[in-house]
Design a protein around this nucleic acid. Sequence first.
DNA 1: CACTTGACCTGTCCGC
DNA 2: TGCGGACAGGTCAAGT
Length: 321
Amino acid sequence: MPELPEVETVRIGLSQFLPGKRFKAVSSDNPKSFPNSNEDVRRFLYKAAVKEVKRRAKVLIIDLDSEYSLVIHMKMTGQLVFVKEAKNMKLQINSNDQNSKFPPSTFHLPPSTDAVRFGAGHPSDSLVGELPDRSTRVIFEFTDGSKLFFNDQRKFGWIRLLPTIEVSNIDFFKKVGPEPLAADFSKQEFRGRFKRRAKTSIKAALLDQTVIAGVGNIYADEALWGAKINPASRTGILSTGKLDKLYEELRTVLELSIEKGGSTDRNYVDAEGKKGSYLKFAKVFRREGLACPRCATTILKNRVAGRGTHYCPKCPQLEQA
DNA sequence: CACTTGACCTGTCCGC
DNA sequence: TGCGGACAGGTCAAGT
């Protein structure tokens, strides 16, 4: 999915457009993507307005003035794309999806309108064409005619409408670790979080959302390269100095990526449908077979913690010598 | 508990 | 060109 920098980029984008917008209609092709009942939608979403768009870990939270919130996890392939002004667009979503094991939603379908993309960059900067497309799972329409599309090829992602006060009680939020970019997140706390995971690889520990929030496969590999740590290293053998270096590198990499609008490997786009450019700056991710920017050794890719893992085999050794 | 593996889905790419 | 298998940015539930 979108990792922390991608979700943060979407949050920043949506924050420009959504506050004050009032929901008029929602449609969904798939209860897995949006399981709320029509009754909940009618009572707490329709006529509610957006107050604020927030993020915790890789999850977006849209607070409404009905004291309800939309909680959104994009998982691997989710996209949230805002489309301003639209007319004559066909809204029969996923009409070709005859094999779906879920019945079509009975949510009220928005009136026909015509898509005009808002803020779309040059076509080559966009992965999103006419919307809705066959990956569109949920469409929100606002009273001014603008729309928010939730596209999700693999259907792992979800959106839930919950009372705002219950958001922090969902299982994921009760267990998730601290925000790595929070001003009060210290090196000491970072080191301490890994004690529980001493016997696993540092890569598995970084990906564990209950240790630190928001790190995924791209930034785990990038931060470990920055700190000259082999991703397969057992967490327990890493020195205080090494973990401190990892703390610095992780924060640097996450901040740089937010500045670059996130990473687009395959599906990720920002709130206006545009790709992020961080991968141009990546040192190891998706660079297997190329030269390490530091020591020119060939970058390898293999499996660590069940995930494709990119690393320089030489840098950590040079460091120890 | 800590740790690993497979499942959830669809699409694409690669080798035969 | 077709077909099977591996793999893809993330969690979960199960197993040891």
